[in-house]
Design a protein around this nucleic acid. Structure first.
Lengths: 125, 125
DNA sequence: AAGATATATTCCCATATAGCAATATGTATG
DNA sequence: CATACATATTGCTATATGGGAATATATCTT
C-alpha cells in the first residue's frame, strides 16, 4: 500500500518543502496571485500552480477568481491536525510543568489502552 | 527536484501513516522489539524493519541490541521541528480576534443563511 | 477581432518509495 | 555443530510525484 496521497493527507501535503515555502509566503493575511508566488520561488509557474492545487485540495488554501488572476489565501486552520498530533509529544522536550507532563502522559496512555483493547493488566514500566 | 528523502527530512518521514502508527505504539516510555511492533500492525516484518530504519535515520527512534532482539525507543524530541513549524500558525485557530476568524464566521453564517432559504420553499419570510 | 496576459492542464521523464517474497545475517539453544 | 528464531537486506513491482515544456483556457486590452 502506498502512502496516502498528497491531495488527501495534510501530513503528506506539507512534507514537500516547496509547499511549506509557499505556505510561509501566503502567511501575511493577504491574498496572493499565482504570479506573485512564482516571483518568489525558484520553480516555474506550472509547478507553483500544481503545488497550490495540492494545498487547495487538502484545504490549506482557498482560491477566488478576480479577473484573470486567481487569488489564493492561506487557511492555516487546516494545519491543526498536525499541531494536535505533534502536541501529543510535547512532554519529550518540555519538562517545565509537571501538570502538563502528567496530563500528556495520561492522555497518551488512555489512548493506547483504548486502541489496543486492554490486555486487562497494567504494569507500565 | 524531488522532495527531500524520508530518511533526511522528518516532515517527510512522518508523512507515512504507518510510521505515525509505529510512533504511537512506541509512545509508552518502553523499548519495543521489532516483533512486538509487527504484532500490532498490519504489515510484514520487513516493512516494519524498514519503517523503523527510516525513523532511526531521522533520529525519531534509537535502537539497542539485546540478544537477538533490537529494542527501539522513541526519541520524540526529534519531532520538535514539526512542532515549531506548525506552532507559528496557531493564531489561525486560537486567536479569537483576527481577520481569519472573522472571515470563517462570516462564511459559516453565509452558508447557514443560504441553507435556510432554499429556492421557493420558504413561503413567508 | 487580434494579441497579450494569467493560470491551469497535459504529456513526458526521472526518481522515490511502500510492500512482498526470498534471502542473508546474527544469535540463542539443543 | 545444527537448528530455530529475530531482524535486516536485497530484488522486484507498482505507484506516486515533482518538474519542465508545450498547450489549453480564460480574461483583459487595444
Amino acid at each position: 500500500m502506498a502512502r496516502a496521497a498528497t491531495t488527501t493527507d495534510v501530513f503528506n501535503a506539507i512534507a514537500e518543502p516547496r509547499r511549506r515555502e509557499i505556505i510561509r509566503i501566503l502567511d501575511d493575511g493577504n491574498e496572493w496571485a499565482v504570479g506573485d508566488v512564482v516571483a518568489r520561488v525558484n520553480i516555474g509557474q506550472p509547478a507553483v500552480s500544481k503545488h497550490l492545487g495540492v494545498l487547495r485540495q487538502v484545504g490549506v488554501v482557498t482560491v477566488v477568481k478576480r479577473g484573470q488572476n486567481r487569488l489564493y489565501r492561506l487557511e492555516a486552520a487546516q494545519l491543526r491536525p498536525i499541531h494536535d498530533w505533534v502536541k501529543t509529544y510535547e512532554r519529550y522536550w518540555n519538562h517545565q510543568i509537571d501538570r502538563i507532563k502528567e496530563r500528556a502522559e495520561k492522555k497518551a496512555m488512555d489512548r493506547i489502552a483504548r486502541e489496543n483493547t486492554p490486555p486487562a493488566h497494567n504494569s507500565k514500566k
